[in-house]
């Protein structure tokens, strides 16, 4: 399994990367962590003629709270999320997600930006970022722009960025008081993509759900929010029945494909279970639990 030949560029600055991308528009692919792209190239499912390796752009590796959000540089390693104190303490949904992405070795190469930009519904970050109502920052020849996560995923492996743009940052709003989040993933074995997974971020007002967003993993062609499930929660006093209703709504609105991980009915029902378990955990955390 040997990749096809290509020309390789290793820009030392974002501007150099953007200029290379513009120069080779349509022929070039960005190499971030490469943990999806390189296997695809080894199978010759991807045969880019030009690779622009942005791993030397260390300026794009950071995790820090800035104003009202957590800013994550696109080239931040997944592994860094696991270790970051701010993620552990204040972004449990993100931490839950980071520790179940692929395996520990892959997480030493894979990047947050790459995981999102790949727009693979099987990846774990899209659902999480949908639940967080994150914002994607993209830079291109015309400058920098922000894209709400709800507008970012436009198709299977397709995103809202132009061919000449590079994803530079992800911004997660700081959770308000009484917020909680959780990611529950059911996988065939460690390192696998999810059979189904649910990312839940919610805010309580007393016993009532004041706000909730739910993202789902690997049960649709395009990374999706479970808006029906959210609707079952918001404004309701939390109870087993409400949680069950949210799970049932998610099962109905997701759109999984049958494969070796299971049939459609199975995946829908697992989605119900994952959504319920994530809600329960998110509620517990919103109430101050771990």
């Amino acid at each position: 399994m040997i990749p096809g030949a290509f020309d390789y560029h290793s820009p030392r600055s974002l501007d150099e990367a953007l200029s290379l991308l513009q120069q080779h528009a349509g022929d070039a692919k960005i190499l971030a962590g490469g943990q999806s792209l390189i296997p695809a190239m080894r199978f010759r499912l991807a045969m880019p003629s030009i690779l622009i390796d942005i791993n030397r752009l260390d300026d794009l590796r950071y995790i820090e709270e800035r104003g009202d959000h957590l800013a994550i540089g696109a080239m931040t390693l997944e592994h860094s999320l696991e270790d970051a104190a701010v993620v552990r303490s204040s972004y449990p949904l993100l931490h839950d997600t980071a520790v179940v992405i692929a395996d520990p070795l892959v997480r030493n190469m894979a990047t947050v930006g790459g995981n999102i930009a790949h727009a693979d519904p099987a990846n774990d970050h899209p659902g999480t970022m949908l639940a967080y109502d994150a914002t994607v920052v993209a830079k291109g020849p015309k400058g920098e722009r922000t894209i709400p996560i709800d507008d970012f995923f436009t198709g299977l492996f397709e995103n809202a960025m132009g061919e000449d743009e590079i994803l530079t940052e992800i911004r997660i709003p700081k959770p308000a008081a009484n917020s909680g989040g959780a990611y529950t993933k059911f996988e065939r074995k460690v390192g696998d993509y999810a059979i189904s997974a649910a990312a839940v971020q919610l805010r309580l007002d007393g016993g009532t759900v004041a706000a909730a967003r739910i993202g789902l993993t690997n049960v649709s062609a395009v990374p999706m929010r479970a808006k029906g499930a959210e609707a079952e929660l918001v404004g309701k006093s939390i109870s087993d029945a409400v949680i069950e209703a949210a799970g049932t709504a998610a099962a109905a609105e997701c759109d999984p494909s049958p494969d070796l991980r299971g049939g459609v009915d199975y995946k829908r029902d697992i989605t119900r279970v994952m959504v319920k378990r994530s809600i329960q955990q998110a509620v517990a955390r919103a109430k101050g639990g771990k």
Binding site: L31, G34, H79, L105
Partner: peptide
């Protein structure tokens, strides 16, 4: 990128050397 038989340390971190180009 499943088996890890090719694991080496690059700048101290273990990575799967079959999923990285030498130029990197």
């Amino acid at each position: 990128t499943s088996c890890g038989a090719c694991t080496v340390l690059v700048c101290g971190k273990p990575v799967k050397s079959c999923t990285m180009f030498a130029v990197q």
